[in-house]
Amino acid sequence: MRTTRIAAAIGALALALTVTACGGDDSEGGSSGNASFAAGSTMEKLNKAQKIRVGTKFDQPGFGLKGLSGKPEGFDVEIAKLVAKALDIPEDKIEYQETPSTVREQVLQQDKVDIVVATYTINDKRKAVIDFAGPYYIAGQSILVKADDASITGPDSFKDGTKKVCSVTNSTPATNIEKYLGDKTKQLVLFDIYQKCVDALKGGQVDAVTTDNVILAGFVATNEGAFKLAGQTFTEEPYGIGLKKGDAAFKTFINDTLEKAFQDGAYKKAWDDTAGKNDTSELKIPTIDRS
């Protein structure tokens, strides 16, 4: 186990040499680094308080998972740290709150957190009630199968109603795959965490596990050749940073912070240290959506 992770980390390091640089122009509003923010802005308020409340997941390997230390670790957590740094707030002043998928909009609307970084797919329904900065990563849903299984090649393989698939309760991937199922009651299994799905795949109770490709890549890496990804990704999930609706200045500030991190390598490092460890594909830097 541990040796595979080291191997994966080395692989990721090698990848770090092939940086793809895209992304936007120079950010003029990127005021990070110094502590002067426009009076009355959210940035000034947070900077003065020297505290930022971040909603993230505590059970998503690679993105936000509480480690044995009791602190959340992962790519989402690193992105939150980048934002905090730009606000001149030290890392230990970040207050993490667990935000499972069900409550993400709610906690923003009720001002329980300042930002939500929690594998949060940008979509129109959510945009109606909150704002998104980013995207900072484009994931896509994929399918994990046993390494010797050639019968599943993509989501269409589930249409005949025999293959069984596992995902996580109340998640977007679970909703997405339902469209491809012949008979939901005979084909779909839902658990609270992906680990349980992977156990069911190992035991042969299900034939496949589906969720975003990066999460599945993690399981491919930690299970030493037992699993593989079947086919290509079949959805596009742009992860954004959730903000309270209508705070345009804060949104611009975070977008600028992200673009700066895309360029100065901080973003790449954050990825390589966390979710990127298990992902052998090239890291594509997304284009910020400023609409």
Partner: peptide
């Protein structure tokens, strides 16, 4: 564990994802 309160079973679900020893 269903609402995410970090009692022992919730912590167990977090830990097993790191140690893989359900």
């Amino acid at each position: 564990f269903i609402i995410g309160y970090e009692e022992i079973l919730r912590i167990t679900t977090q830990v097993v994802q790191i140690l893989d020893n359900q």
